[in-house]
């Protein structure tokens, strides 16, 4: 069995709720994401790369998409969302520094994974605040992670978490408000 077919099979198991399959999938995706990030940094002129685009690229590389449906796809992106977050976090802990490629300017992984609209926000700050959100409100943290790092739609998040789309929307509103408040330093007004 080709590696891709194998990964696709593991993904189908993960989508079916097999936790061991998720564990098996994670290092694969993580490795591919790191590899991809480096690859893009090596390419001329490509010094920024959206996290979600990276995840999509990893998906196309790792998964035989003709043999997997949208449910599987959602589960892939769900695992990948966590992996992207981990790639970033490792970077900040000094473990995940991207090696310098011959003749290329070294670019921070953080820069490579430019974070959508938060471009101005310090990525490290976001990661830290997100962890804090998770301590009190893990459900909300997970929705933010899936949407922000994985680029999943609300329907896909609903599928992955096994909750309703409405629940996803509410959790998203809560998580976003909470993070926004923390990051903008807005004080409670009462």
């Amino acid at each position: 069995m080709s590696d891709r077919a194998e990964t696709t099979r593991v993904l189908a198991k993960a989508a079916g709720g097999d936790a061991a399959a998720v564990d098996q999938l994670f290092p694969k995706i993580y490795g591919e994401l790191r590899r991809l990030a480096q690859h893009y940094l090596a390419g001329a002129g490509e010094d920024t790369m959206q996290a979600t685009a990276l995840v999509h690229e990893a998906y196309l590389k790792l998964i035989d998409h003709t043999a997997s449906g949208w449910v599987d796809r959602a589960h892939f992106f769900a695992v990948a969302a966590r992996a992207v977050r981990q790639v970033l976090l490792d970077h900040h802990k000094g473990k995940g520094r991207v090696k310098r490629w011959a003749g290329q300017q070294r670019v921070d992984l953080e820069q490579a994974l430019t974070l959508g609209q938060v471009r101005d926000t310090n990525a490290l700050a976001l990661l830290q605040v997100l962890e804090r959100l998770g301590r009190a409100h893990p459900g909300q943290e997970r929705v933010v992670e899936l949407r922000f790092f994985g680029g999943l739609t609300h329907e896909e998040i609903a599928e992955v978490l096994g909750v309703s789309v409405r629940t996803v929307e509410r959790r998203w509103r809560f998580g976003r408000a909470w993070l926004y408040r923390e990051l903008t330093g807005e004080e409670a007004d009462g």
């Binding site: 959508g116 949407r147 809560f174 976003r176 409670a188 007004d189 009462g190």
Partner: peptide
């Protein structure tokens, strides 16, 4: 519960202000 009320309010205000915060481009 004043503390609770303040907490909810600050989150609702943030929700109002957040706009496209964290949305993909």
């Amino acid at each position: 519960d004043e503390a609770l009320l303040a907490e909810v309010r600050s989150l609702l205000d943030a929700d109002n202000a957040a706009g496209k915060f964290l949305d993909p481009p």
